[in-house]
Amino acid sequence: MTSATPVIVYPPDESGGRRVRVDGAILGLAYSTRDVAAFLQEAGLQGWDDLDVVRSSLIEWRGGGPEEWTH
């Protein structure tokens, strides 16, 4: 994953989970910004944390921003 790779966080589902897609592949279901950061670290952005996720323009938040985790 490079810094130009698109990251999409989809709207919350019924359980509050949000699908995280990186470069066209679904990485998993996140329930917090901490989960999103973990997925991005696994995809190659080592050292990312919750604040990086919230502040990054690399991430496209659909159905609400990083503070939205309920359906």
Rank of each mutant, 00 (worst) to 15 (best):
V9I: 10
A38Y: 04
R21F: 00
W61G: 03
T2K: 14
V7D: 06
A4W: 04
A4F: 07
S15F: 09
R19M: 07
V53S: 09
P6Y: 04
H71Y: 07
R19S: 13
A37N: 02
R34M: 03
G17M: 04
H71M: 00
A30F: 03
D50K: 11
E68L: 01
G63R: 04
Y31Q: 05
W69N: 01
I26A: 14
E42Q: 15
G47C: 12
W69C: 01
E42Y: 10
Q46D: 15
V20E: 09
P11C: 03
Y31A: 02
V36Q: 03
G28M: 04
I59K: 05
R18Q: 08
A30K: 02
T5G: 12
R21V: 13
S57P: 05
V36G: 02
V54A: 13
W48C: 12
D23C: 06
L58V: 08
L40I: 09
E60V: 10
A4T: 14
W61D: 04
G64I: 01
A37P: 03
G65R: 02
L27Q: 14
W61M: 05
D23Q: 12
S57F: 00
A43I: 07
D50I: 06
P12C: 07
P12G: 05
A37T: 02
T70I: 02
G64N: 04
R62P: 00
Q41G: 15
S15L: 10
T5Y: 08
M1I: 13
P12R: 04
G16F: 03
A38H: 09
D49T: 09
L45C: 13
R34G: 10
L51V: 08
A37V: 01
E42L: 14
A37M: 03
R21N: 11
A25G: 00
V22L: 15
L27C: 11
G44W: 13
P11F: 01
G24S: 07
M1L: 15
D13S: 08
R19V: 00
P11S: 03
V53I: 14
G28D: 08
L40Y: 08
P12Q: 06
A43N: 13
M1P: 11
M1N: 08
G65Q: 02
E42I: 11
Q46K: 15
T5W: 10
Q46Y: 13
V54D: 05
A38T: 11
R21H: 10
V54G: 00
R18H: 07
P66S: 09
G64H: 03
D13Q: 07
R21C: 07
